[in-house]
Structures are given as structure tokens and as C-alpha cells.
Simulated assay, not measured.
Amino acid sequence: MTITARLQLDPPCEADLEDLHRIYSDARTWTHLPSGRFANLATTRDALAGWLADWREHGLGAWVARERGVVVGHGGCAVRQGAFWNLGYRFAPEAQGRGLATELARAAVDAAREHRPELPVVAYLLENNPASAAVAEKVGLSLRHRGPDAGNPDPSAVRLVFADRALSETELVATMR
């Protein structure tokens, strides 16, 4: 468990399934990528299995964020492609706009740097999501790449890659998968 000023951050568990589904199935949490919305509980269950695997395999992954005991979000850093820490998060609409994402992201970056400092911390996001870009910058990440978002159903979508250091070509390519 990690405690911030307003959040209790815990590794996810099976009992969090319904709360996570409530957040990930809400279209309001996917305004920048509507196709990413979790349409059914099975999708959330599969994602939860992956999040649990991150913790087992790497000793760190995305947390369930609770504010005064209520699940308000999910996020953190998880190793991707064995090449970098991926910083990501999603918060319930009623919890957005209050700095909770920045609070969680700071804790996640610190945990990743402590756990495996040799891996860069990366946040990749869509250009039409300026709030996430602002969070990345607030936690010390800088824009390292701007280009097409491969695999996005919107062919005009642009991916931004922020990182805590310069990325090698191999690391950058890994963020495009």
C-alpha cells in the first residue's frame, strides 16, 4: 500500500473487479479514445488478470486508487515490452479535475524509479488529450516523440510520447506497439 496526501494506492485484487469495471466502462472516461471503452465485464476481467500479472512478474504495476475508502481511479507504472515503465491512469468522472491523477502519477514515477531505475518512465497518449500531457509534464516527463498513432481506428490520431529521459530507438519503437 502507498499513501499520498489524498489517496490510498493498493495493488488490485479480484474484489476490485466491479469498481474497475464501473470506471473503465464509463464512456466519459474514454472521451479521447472512445474505442478503448470496456464494453463488458469480461473485458475488465481480462484486463484485471493482466494488471495482477504485472504485480506478480515485476513487483509493481497499476494501483487501485481510493479516496476516503471509495475507489476513484486506477493507475501507476507497469513494465512494457521489457523496455520501459508505462505510466497510465484512469479516474472516475467525479474524481477528475482535482489533481488526483498528478498525485497518483508522482507516486508511480517515484516507485518505478526506486524499483528499476534503469528503465525509462514513459507516458504515451493522444494529442487530443491535453490534460494527460499536462500531468506528464508536471511529474517531470518531457515530450520525446510526436507521430501517427498506429492501430488507432482514427487515422488522423497523433500519439505523443513523454519520457523522463532520452529514449533509444529500441525504447521508442517499443512504445509504438
Rank of each mutant, 00 (worst) to 15 (best):
T2D: 02
I3P: 01
I3F: 09
L7M: 13
L9Q: 05
P11Q: 13
P11Y: 13
P12Y: 09
D16I: 13
D16L: 08
L17F: 12
D19K: 08
D19L: 09
H21V: 14
R22C: 00
S25F: 04
S25L: 00
A27Y: 03
H32T: 15
F38R: 11
A39D: 06
N40A: 10
T44R: 04
R45M: 04
R45E: 14
A49I: 02
W51D: 04
W51C: 01
L52E: 08
D54V: 03
W55C: 01
G61K: 04
G61V: 05
A65Q: 02
V71R: 03
V72Q: 06
G75I: 11
A78T: 05
R80D: 00
G82Q: 09
A83N: 02
F84D: 00
N86A: 12
G88M: 10
G88T: 06
Y89I: 06
F91E: 09
E94D: 07
A95L: 05
A95D: 09
G97S: 00
R106T: 14
R106K: 13
V109P: 03
P117H: 15
P117L: 12
L119R: 14
V122S: 02
A123I: 10
A123R: 12
L125H: 07
L126M: 13
E127C: 07
E127I: 08
N128A: 03
N129A: 06
N129F: 05
N129D: 07
A131W: 10
A136Q: 14
A136C: 06
G140A: 14
R144N: 05
R146V: 08
D149I: 05
N152S: 15
D154M: 02
A157R: 11
R159D: 00
T170M: 00
T170K: 09
E171L: 06
A174K: 04
A174V: 08
T175C: 00
M176I: 01
R177V: 14
R177C: 01
